[in-house]
């Protein structure tokens, strides 16, 4: 266990709320990262704005904490300018699915050589728990006091449909599985996308009867179904993007393809 070789320990304790799943996702990431033996000096972290985007400031490597939603665009430029760098992007559901939605699908479409971790807490945590593009239908937030009338994005399926090479989803109640898919993703090329549903007991949980971190984690665990199980049950993808009505959170590897990455395409055979 070498936690703090990867982190900037002078910044601990970090700013995340008690029980926040971002910390868990970060721990899983560092474990996968250490297991894969990636060189911190040849790694860069890029993030946008939001709680999860603050992770870039806690990782002891070159890190770019940028503007809201644009992390992927910054990362694209950085990766193309220095192709020896492993570029990791930490982002959240608001950053990636709402304000940065276009950059997200376009980067997937290009199959840009980036590793992206989206910490999905189903709301805008940094600004105090407003509805985001992944807030579940009918769930309460500070801007949907009567329940969310909109339907959420299924970010993992969106990434897969847009052409990302590797897409997987788990929750912060599945740390072992998260590490496994992260490690698998690190061995793929092109756009790698890991969506981690996490507990946000302080905002999302407070409005939705999941006040304690443990309650929130139990809710995540109970509502997760592995994609293979889903298929065995004969359910379609439409069933599971909407937790409130019928579905569950599909977890597992959503897509594992071998399409040429952007850099492979521009570099050609030479």
């Amino acid at each position: 266990m070498t936690h703090f070789k990867v982190y900037r320990e002078d910044r601990w304790p970090h700013m995340f709320c008690p029980g926040c799943g971002i910390g868990t996702t970060m721990s899983c990431f560092q474990r996968a990262f250490v297991n894969q033996g990636i060189d911190l000096d040849k790694t860069a972290f890029v993030s946008g704005i939001g709680c999860s985007s603050r992770v870039s400031g806690y990782v002891y490597a070159d890190s770019l904490h940028t503007t809201h939603g644009r992390g992927l665009a910054y990362a694209t430029g950085l990766k193309l300018a220095n192709r020896d760098l492993d570029v990791f992007v930490f982002t959240g559901d608001g950053d990636l699915g709402a304000i940065g939605g276009n950059h997200f699908i376009q980067a997937c479409r290009r199959n840009m050589d980036l590793f992206v971790i989206c910490v999905n807490n189903n709301n805008f945590g940094m600004t105090g728990g407003q509805a985001s593009s992944t807030t579940l239908h009918g769930y309460t937030t500070s801007t949907t006091p009567g329940g969310n009338p909109e339907y959420p994005f299924d970010l993992a399926r969106l990434a897969a449909a847009a052409g990302a090479n590797y897409v997987a989803r788990y929750t912060s109640a599945h740390p072992k599985q998260l590490i496994r898919v992260m490690e698998e993703g690190m061995n793929r090329k092109g756009f790698r996308f890991i969506e981690a549903w996490v507990a946000c007991p302080v905002y999302f949980g407070r409005y939705n009867k999941l006040k304690t971190p443990v309650e929130h984690l139990e809710w995540l665990k109970e509502n997760s179904v592995h994609i293979e199980q889903m298929k065995a049950d004969g359910r379609t993808s439409e069933d599971d993007i909407d937790l409130h009505v019928a579905g569950k959170i599909t977890v597992g590897v959503i897509r594992d393809a071998e399409r040429k990455s952007y850099i492979e395409s521009i570099e050609g055979d030479d």
């Binding site: 266990m1 970090h14 008690p18 868990t24 899983c28 072992k176």
Partner: peptide, 19 residues
């Protein structure tokens, strides 16, 4: 290692592993 991995605050160490 579920406790070490799940701890959101990186607060759990285990001296057996050289932490």
């Amino acid at each position: 290692e579920l406790c070490i991995l799940s701890c959101p605050d990186q607060a759990i160490r285990d001296d057996l592993y050289g932490d």
